[in-house]
């Protein structure tokens, strides 16, 4: 149990970081296609789709690297949590508006990912972020106070 408590947060942190690095790299490799995926949500005006497609993958990349390295974990995890909330809101709005689009979460083009699957996946990522924020020692700047002596 102690071992699980010791290694689980680190494993979750590195996994989450690696997922975001992968997501970022495939988007950076094809920014036009990612701009298309962002535009398909019909939320942002024309140029903002390109701006989001240019900036978001780098934000994912930097935060992913920070999580993998265990450096500035709290800041990186908080940004990833915020990104996940934004992604979930966008996917939910696509479901509500009945848009038949690919979520654009990872590899651009190819088979469509159901928005419900995307939503479930983002929920898992958000839960992983909370595990990191709550349990990973890197997310705490100060050690916990010792137990009070009886």
């Amino acid at each position: 149990m102690n071992r699980l408590r010791r290694y689980l947060p680190a494993a979750v942190r590195v996994t989450l970081g690696a997922i975001f690095i992968y997501a970022a790299v495939v988007k950076i490799a094809d920014p036009v296609a990612f701009a298309g995926s962002v535009a398909a949500y019909k939320i942002l005006p024309y140029f903002a789709n390109y701006l989001a497609a240019a900036v978001l993958p780098f934000l994912e990349l930097f935060c992913g690297v920070l999580l993998v390295l265990g450096y500035r974990v709290k800041a990186g995890a908080l940004i990833i949590a915020a990104l996940n909330v934004v992604f979930m809101a966008a996917v939910a709005s696509a479901i509500v508006r009945g848009l038949d689009i690919d979520c654009g979460c990872f590899k651009q083009g190819g088979d469509k990912t159901s928005p419900w699957i995307a939503l479930a996946r983002d929920t898992v990522f958000l839960a992983m972020t909370f595990v990191v924020l709550k349990l990973d020692p890197g997310a705490r700047r100060h050690p916990s106070p010792p137990m009070q002596e009886q």
């Binding site: 950076i28 920014p31 036009v32 701009a35 024309y46 140029f47 390109y50 701006l51 497609a53 240019a54 900036v55 978001l56 993958p57 780098f58 934000l59 990349l61 930097f62 935060c63 920070l66 500035r72 800041a75 990186g76 908080l78 940004i79």
Partner: peptide, 23 residues
């Protein structure tokens, strides 16, 4: 958080400069 966002935004804009100016 602000620093990470600024660095990411700068890197993203610099990397995609020609795409963004074209758009």
């Amino acid at each position: 958080i602000c620093l990470i966002i600024i660095i990411s935004a700068s890197a993203g804009v610099a990397w995609n400069w020609s795409l963004l100016t074209g758009a």
